[in-house]
C-alpha cells in the first residue's frame, strides 16, 4: 500500500487505495478559537465537532471551523498562507500536525511509501518554499512513513497526463498559489508557482463587496457558476471579474516564464486542476483565454481534471505507488532467498 497527501492552503487531502477504489480523505486546513467551558465542550462532543482544548481555549478544526466562523461572524485562522506554513500564525505547525495526523492515519506498516505535494518557489513573491517542504516531510516521517516530496504541478501531470506519456503542462490552481510544471516524459522541465489563487479571489471579492472572506469562499465553492450573466450587486459578479483577472495573470506569467526556456519541440497537452478550478464554466473560460494568449509552446489540447480538488493527491498516490513498486521489485529476489535460508536454518535447529 502507499498513500498520496496534498497539503494545501485550504484542504489537506489524503488519497489511498482500498481494493479497486481510491479513497480520498479530506479536511479543511483552518481553525477557529473559542472560549472553553464545560458546556461548550459537551455540546461540541455531542455534535461530533472536531476540536482541541488547550489553556482554557478551544480550537475548532476543519470544516466545522468555517461553519462556526459564519455563525459567529468571525474569520477562521489559517495555518498556511500562499501555499506554505504561515509565518504569521504561531500555532501553524501544531494545527497542521493535528490535521495531517487525522487525515493520513497511521501507516499500514513501517516505512509505508508516502508522497506529499509541495509548491514550487513563486516567481512573483519574495518567498522560499524549502522550510515548508522540510517541515511537512519531517512531520510525516515522524509518523513512520517513507516520505518523498514532489511539486504540485508534477502531481497534476502524473494524475492527468498519463495518455501523453506524462508529457505536458500541469497547472494546479489552489487557494494560496497557482503551481505550474512543464514535464517531458515524466521529467520536470520547468516548475514554478504564481502567488495568486482562490484566496486572492476571496480577498478581492471581500474588498469589493464588503462580504467576509470566508463568506466569499463559501459562495465560490457552493453553487457558483462562471458565466456571462450575473445578478447586479451579488458576489457572483465580483467572483467572475476576479476569476477573469486571475486567469489573465496566471497565463501572462506562464507565457513570460516559458519564454525563458527552450522546451522540446513537441505538442504539449495542458491539464488544469486544483480546488479553485472547480466552479462550472471554469474550463470554458480558461481554454478560451489560453488559446487567445498564443503561448510560447505548442498546445495540443486542454483538459480540466475530472475531479480538480483530488487531482494533486491522486498524482501523489501514483508517485508513491511507483516508488513503492520500484522498491518492492528491488527487494523481491532477496526476500525469496532469505525465506529459503530461514527455512534451512530452522530445520538445522
Amino acid at each position: 500500500m502507499a498513500k498520496g497527501l496534498d497539503i494545501g492552503t485550504m484542504n489537506i487531502i489524503c488519497a489511498e487505495n482500498e481494493g479497486e477504489d481510491v479513497v480520498f480523505t479530506q479536511e479543511r486546513n483552518a481553525f477557529l478559537e473559542l472560549d472553553s467551558s464545560d458546556l461548550t465542550n459537551m455540546m461540541l462532543d455531542s455534535a461530533k465537532v472536531l476540536y482541541i482544548e488547550k489553556d482554557d481555549k478551544i480550537s475548532v478544526l476543519g470544516e466545522d471551523a468555517f461553519n462556526f466562523a459564519t455563525i459567529f461572524g468571525k474569520e477562521t485562522r489559517r495555518p498556511m498562507r500562499f501555499g506554505i506554513i504561515s509565518p504569521k500564525e504561531k500555532d501553524a505547525i501544531p494545527m497542521i500536525k493535528l490535521i495531517v495526523d487525522r487525515v493520513l492515519g497511521d501507516p499500514g506498516y513501517q516505512n509505508e511509501a508516502l508522497c506529499i505535494s509541495s509548491p514550487a518557489d513563486p516567481i512573483d513573491l519574495d518567498m522560499n518554499t524549502l522550510y515548508h517542504k522540510k517541515m511537512t516531510e519531517a512531520l510525516t516521517k515522524k509518523m513512520s512513513y517513507d516520505t518523498k516530496v514532489i511539486d504540485e504541478g508534477l502531481a497534476v501531470v502524473y494524475s492527468e497526463l498519463a495518455d501523453s506519456n506524462f508529457t505536458g503542462l500541469g497547472i494546479s490552481i489552489g487557494a494560496g498559489l497557482t503551481n505550474v510544471t512543464l514535464a517531458y516524459m515524466a521529467t520536470p522541465v520547468l516548475s514554478f508557482s504564481i502567488g495568486r489563487g482562490g484566496d486572492w479571489i476571496d480577498e478581492q471579492v471581500s474588498n469589493a463587496t464588503g462580504l467576509p472572506k470566508d463568506h466569499a469562499c463559501v459562495t465560490k465553492e457552493k453553487g457558483f457558476r462562471l458565466g456571462s450573466e450575473v445578478e447586479i450587486g451579488g458576489p457572483e459578479g465580483a467572483l467572475t471579474i476576479y476569476y477573469d483577472a486571475l486567469m489573465t495573470y496566471v497565463i501572462q506569467n506562464l507565457n513570460k516564464k516559458l519564454a525563458e526556456i527552450t522546451p522540446p519541440n513537441v505538442k504539449f497537452p495542458v491539464a488544469v486542476a486544483g480546488g479553485s478550478s472547480n466552479p462550472p464554466g471554469f474550463s470554458k473560460m480558461f481554454e478560451k483565454k489560453l488559446k487567445e494568449a498564443n503561448l510560447q509552446i505548442d498546445i495540443s489540447n486542454i483538459n480540466i481534471a475530472t475531479d480538480p480538488l483530488y487531482s494533486v493527491s491522486r498524482g501523489c498516490l501514483i508517485a508513491a505507488r511507483t516508488q513503492e513498486g520500484e522498491e518492492m521489485g528491488r527487494n523481491k529476489n532477496a526476500d525469496d532467498i532469505l525465506q529459503e535460508i530461514e527455512e534451512i536454518g530452522e530445520g538445522e535447529e
Binding site: 487505495n17 479530506q26 462532543d45 461530533k48 465537532v49 482541541i52 515524466a186 513498486g325
Partner: peptide, 25 residues
C-alpha cells in the same frame, strides 16, 4: 475532542484502477 477518535475526515470513494502508476514506472 471526541470526534478525533471517530473518523479520519470526510471521505470520498472513487472507482479507479490507477493504471497510471504502472505507466509512470
Amino acid at each position: 475532542g471526541k470526534a478525533f477518535n471517530e473518523s479520519r475526515g470526510k471521505t470520498t470513494r472513487v472507482k479507479d484502477d490507477m493504471n497510471e502508476a504502472d505507466k509512470l514506472k
